[in-house]
Design a binder for these strands. Structure first.
Lengths: 338, 338
DNA sequence: TTGAAAGCGCTAACAG
DNA sequence: CTGTTAGCGCTTTCAA
């Protein structure tokens, strides 16, 4: 039903080869012929069959995404938005490789990509170790990992500057005279989790502040972990005056626990979050936090992948994006208190 | 590089035709031969090239998604989660047709699908009228619309029972002795927006309650519209005792406006939202709202599309899913007040 | 029960 | 500058 290259060759009175060349911008085609072919192709609503194209070894203009945590994770919405824009700019379509498949016994992500003629793959999610990416990395298929630390010949990675973001938070709090700063961590098995912890330790060291083991609370980004973490902190003989949380969700949980105990935020206690999700604005007091450029991450991930696909000489296959401090109402100067 | 059907034919000492038949479950293949071929295919990690398959007119096992509002909309995360699961169950992969392309002058979504050998298309977003879907609907390509009212030969649609959800809210509030109930609407140009308004009017009529024009506030699901809407309501000589909002975001905005005016929720005023997003839980008082089964919508949308693709005889090509009442803290009995 | 061969729509040599 | 032709990997008649 759809028109093919032969139809338009016939209509234009030329051969299919000429049509192909004309439409693909070869210079060896007479300008008039090309114009005519283009006009006819336009009129007949010609659109090349991408399967045929990939079959002849041409580019498929398809990149894959694989999400280790599934599509349902709302965190990815922003990243996907950035990917969307980049797709247009670079002319790709995106095929989503259902993670569900991955549970089958003989499944190979790499083979799945090959069989779909995917030119490159974007991987993101949170689980670095729950899956074996070595086959993929060794396969030569260009891959860009988001928020995962991976290396290889045709492998790139992109992430926010998590460490610096937290380091700056510590610095900021120290500037408000906070000395007893606690930390509710992210998931230790993730790259961002590790980096944020590193940034905290570095910041504390720089400011000459004690790093007390009882102020280092393991979290998992969830609201619940923030709530429980804050309760533990508040039960300590010497309470912190400020708490850095590794996500807005856990910060909201922490806030809740603090308010429940009758504390005033930020007067008695400062709290800071991470991500700047919608809830950070709606909670009271509104959360001071750090914004990740999620759109930018998605956009640049596709750009990097495209560069890898096209075999560009890349000086740096790691992209670390700056974050932005978002001052709201949950931080204030330390009270000389207890 | 990847192994193809010829490689395994050679290894098995048979022809490619036999391999193809064996692997595709034709009964005209000797059992022993089939077993051998399957074993070898397994060993050699054979995976058929999907481009070649679609080229010969076989199924591509690919369905497309087209989002009129782009990937960034967090509302879709849940729906996509359901789609994800269904994809596995039905064996499809999903290609995302970048909406960005749609802005180009000669763009045709239908052609895009054809050129990508997509077997069926899922469409969702909010704009029913900003785009012309008639070409698509007339093309014979199976399409399932989510939250959009569309009809056609190979067209299905799925949505929550928006009208009933709001009607039940009115009933519930009336049961709490509320008589002056206001409504902050969704976007009138959308199917859910229309249905929710219809449900409101129906509920009010059923309960024998006045429908006052000044209590019908146009909104757009945003927090801001909720905030502004509530301010208008509170400036009225006779204030409502309950406000139904068409989204949780607008309910949060409304809540904010009410608290700012020194009102107590739910003592002075009841507020109810829609969707049950994360923020509904974190706000104080926690929002009483209605939950849509977003996963279910996505899951069933794919199921419906698959049925359409396979040409199943479908009695009903419209699926309307029930919603769930989520009781929290923002609704209470009406005070005989003011 | 198996194999030879045609052909899906397209691009890429290679001739003309 | 244009056309002829082979072939990408696969499925599918049609013969054997």
């Amino acid at each position: 039903m759809p028109v093919n290259i032969r139809d338009i060759a016939k209509a234009a009175g030329v051969s299919v080869a000429t049509v192909s060349k004309a439409l693909n911008g070869y210079s060896t085609v007479n300008a008039a012929t090309r114009a005519k072919i283009q006009r006819i192709a336009e009129e007949m609503q010609y659109h090349p069959n991408s399967a045929a194209r990939s079959l002849v070894g041409q580019r498929s203009m398809t990149i894959g995404v694989f999400l280790t945590t599934g599509l349902a994770n709302p965190f990815f919405a922003g990243v996907l938005g950035g990917i969307d824009r980049a797709l247009k700019d670079r002319g790709y379509d995106l095929i989503y490789l259902a993670q569900a498949h991955a549970e089958e016994p003989g499944y190979s992500l790499m083979r799945h990509c090959r069989s779909r003629n995917v030119e490159g793959l974007l991987v993101f999610g949170m689980q670095e170790n729950d899956m074996d990416f070595s086959e993929l990395i060794g396969s030569g298929l260009p891959v860009v990992f988001i928020d995962m630390e991976m290396e290889g010949e045709h492998v790139g990675m992109i992430s926010s500057d998590n460490a610096e973001a937290i380091r700056a938070e510590v610095q900021h709090l120290a500037g408000l005279n906070h000395r007893r700063i606690a930390f509710i961590s992210g998931i230790a098995g993730t790259y961002p989790g590790r980096m944020r912890e590193r940034g905290f330790l570095q910041g504390m060291a720089e400011q000459g502040l004690d790093r007390r083991p009882e102020y280092m609370i393991p979290g998992d980004y969830s609201r619940e972990s923030g709530y429980e973490g804050m309760r533990r902190l508040l039960s300590l003989p010497e309470r912190p005056t400020a708490v850095i949380c590794c996500s807005d969700a856990s910060a909201v949980g922490a806030l809740e626990a603090a308010l429940e105990q009758g504390l005033s935020v930020p007067d008695d206690l400062s709290i800071v979050g991470f991500d700047d999700v919608e809830a950070a604005r709606s909670v009271r007091p509104a959360l001071t936090t750090v914004r990740q450029d999620m759109q930018g991450i998605g956009y640049q991930a596709v750009g990097l992948l495209d560069d890898l696909i096209r075999g560009e000489e890349l000086a740096e296959k790691r992209i670390i994006l700056p974050t932005e401090w978002v001052e709201r109402d949950s931080c204030g100067p330390a009270k000389e208190s207890r």
